[in-house]
């Protein structure tokens, strides 16, 4: 397993380089230009000058080369400087966002906490709700609980977050006045009061996203459990006189985890990616809203950098999922 992991990690490097190339050129090829942010009142000559100063007009391979150097050399050095107080990266050009004219990584660092806290909590809540529901629904298939769970799950993922979010706002913020609708990113938790405030402002976005996540994970959990419930080994275990609890939670659950692990592993990079619609709606200025803002403004360096960071996370977590498969089912071997 160790050699497998190492080999995969090594292989990931050329893969990621290729992905970075594809992302870079795709984003570059997309129609649209940062000029869409400039009001129409600005004359064409000034417009051209602004774009030129941004570096938009450089040929794409020059920009790609520069970006590679900045991403893999300048930015890590800057990170080292920030941690150790050294000054290796002094005077080097960092990746600069077109939109804000500031380093892309500064923005990411500023926004990551909100995304991790809010979206991460929502994901955790989703998993914590979904797994038990999935297990119990499968165990008592076609019971009232299962039927109700199915109904809710179906509604959960057939209504998009733009709808459920607005509904929650109208119910809980406008109607009942319990929660704020806009997330205050400047709030720092120092005492119980601010902690409570933080919990309150997180509630609506976490609910919106948690429900959507729970809906799909619970379905995979249930179906996979069902698949395994009928297997011979379950009958054998029961025949041996094992308690239902051991049979279901140890034998069936472990064997049913493969699709669920896949789905969860696919979902974790999206935590870092944020949830575009939800973040935007509730003003949780995280990575997701940065990405959509950058896409709308055609802020190419920002889009390319964020997309590439997601690529790294996706490759990494799919690798972790592969390793987990081996642990869950020792018969799976890669070598």
């Amino acid at each position: 397993m160790l050699t497998f992991t190492l080999r995969r990690l090594l292989l990931a490097i050329p893969t990621l380089l290729l992905i970075s190339l594809v992302i870079f050129f795709l984003v570059d090829l997309a129609p649209g230009s940062p000029a869409s942010e400039i009001p129409l009142t600005v004359p064409a000559e000034v417009r051209m000058k602004i774009l030129e100063a941004m570096g938009v007009n450089e040929p794409v391979y020059v920009r790609y080369g520069l970006w590679l150097k900045q991403f893999f050399y300048v930015e890590p050095l800057t990170g080292i400087d920030a941690i150790f107080g050294s000054n290796y990266a002094e005077g080097m050009q960092r990746i600069i966002s077109y939109q804000t004219r500031s380093p892309v990584f500064d923005i990411i660092v500023q926004r990551l906490p909100q995304t991790l806290i809010v979206i991460g909590t929502a994901y955790l809540v989703g998993i914590l709700i979904a797994v038990p529901i999935g297990i119990y629904s499968a165990y008592r298939q076609y019971s009232i609980f299962d039927q109700l769970g199915t109904l809710l799950a179906m509604i959960g993922f057939s209504v998009p977050t733009f709808f459920s979010g607005t509904l929650l706002i109208i119910l809980f913020a406008v109607g009942l006045g319990w929660f704020p609708t806009k997330y205050d990113t400047t709030l720092t938790v120092t005492d119980w009061d601010t902690f409570w405030q933080q919990v309150r402002q997180m509630t609506l976005p976490v609910m919106t996203l948690g429900l959507a996540n729970a809906a799909s994970i619970s379905r995979y959990m249930r179906s996979s459990m069902l698949e395994n419930m009928g297997q011979d080994y379950v009958r054998t275990a029961r025949a041996k006189g094992m308690s239902e609890r051991t049979v279901v939670l140890k034998h069936v659950l472990r064997n049913s985890m493969i699709p669920v692990v896949t789905v969860i592993a696919l979902g974790i990079p999206s935590i870092f990616g944020g949830a575009i619609i939800t973040e935007n709606m509730f003003g949780v200025s995280g990575i997701g809203s940065a990405l959509i803002g950058a896409i709308h403004a055609n802020d190419l360096p920002m889009v390319q950098t964020l997309a590439f960071i997601f690529a790294i996370l996706i490759v990494l977590f799919n690798l972790i999922a592969d390793v987990l498969y081996g642990l869950l089912d020792p018969r799976i071997r890669y070598d």
Binding site: I19, V22, V27, L266, V303, A307, F308, A311, I314, V315
Partner: peptide
């Protein structure tokens, strides 16, 4: 992995 990583819009 690559398709997962491509920015959708």
């Amino acid at each position: 992995d690559m398709f997962l990583a491509l920015p959708l819009i």
